[in-house]
Amino acid sequence: MSEGFASRFTHEEMDAIRKSLRDEERFGSDFMRLLKKVAKRVPFAEDGVAAFLCARDPATPRRVRYTLLAALGYFVLPIDAIPDILPVLGFTDDAAVIAAAIAAVAGSITPEHRERAKAILAGL
């Protein structure tokens, strides 16, 4: 892990992310529950779902999976730089973390992941 990536999260945040990622089923249900509550207000919802689908895809390399799950963990966990309850600003830090993760692994998120994400969001 590079020093630049490690410095973006506090020790407590990394411990919380690791703990939540140990139970992928619970993490997935937490992610979908939160997404259902905020999907209409979150402009990056489709990217988030596509990233989640990519992270759950067995064909996705481990490094990519961990990068995406860490970013999505930041979205799901209550530990946040800017509280999500603040109108407009609440999700800006989440969007930035997810955008950075997606940019880092952009080639791994396939058109199939994006199509499935659109279908999931249409069903909410």
Rank of each mutant, 00 (worst) to 15 (best):
M1K: 12
S2V: 12
E3M: 15
G4A: 15
F5K: 11
A6P: 00
S7R: 15
R8F: 09
F9I: 05
E12R: 15
E12H: 11
E13W: 04
E13F: 05
E13K: 08
M14A: 12
I17T: 06
R18Q: 14
K19Q: 14
K19V: 11
L21S: 10
L21D: 06
E25T: 15
E25I: 11
S29Q: 11
S29Y: 00
F31K: 00
M32Y: 06
M32I: 15
M32Q: 10
M32E: 06
L34Q: 10
L35C: 08
K37W: 06
A39Q: 09
R41K: 12
V42I: 12
P43A: 14
F44C: 10
D47Y: 03
G48P: 01
L53A: 02
L53R: 02
A55M: 03
R56D: 04
D57H: 07
P58F: 01
P58K: 10
A59T: 09
R62I: 14
R63S: 13
V64W: 02
R65V: 13
Y66H: 14
T67I: 10
T67D: 05
L68A: 08
A70K: 06
L72P: 01
G73R: 00
G73K: 01
G73S: 10
F75S: 06
F75N: 00
V76M: 05
L77C: 03
L77K: 02
I79N: 07
A81L: 13
I82F: 06
D84E: 11
I85K: 11
L86S: 06
L86P: 02
P87C: 09
P87T: 06
V88G: 05
L89M: 12
G90V: 03
G90T: 00
T92D: 07
D93G: 06
D93N: 11
D94N: 09
A95D: 01
A96F: 00
A96I: 01
A96H: 02
V97H: 04
A100Q: 08
A100M: 06
A100F: 10
A103M: 04
A103H: 03
A103T: 04
A104R: 11
V105N: 03
S108A: 14
S108I: 04
S108Q: 05
T110S: 15
P111S: 03
E112Y: 04
E112D: 14
R114C: 12
R116L: 13
R116Q: 12
A117V: 05
K118D: 03
A122W: 01
L124I: 15
L124Q: 12
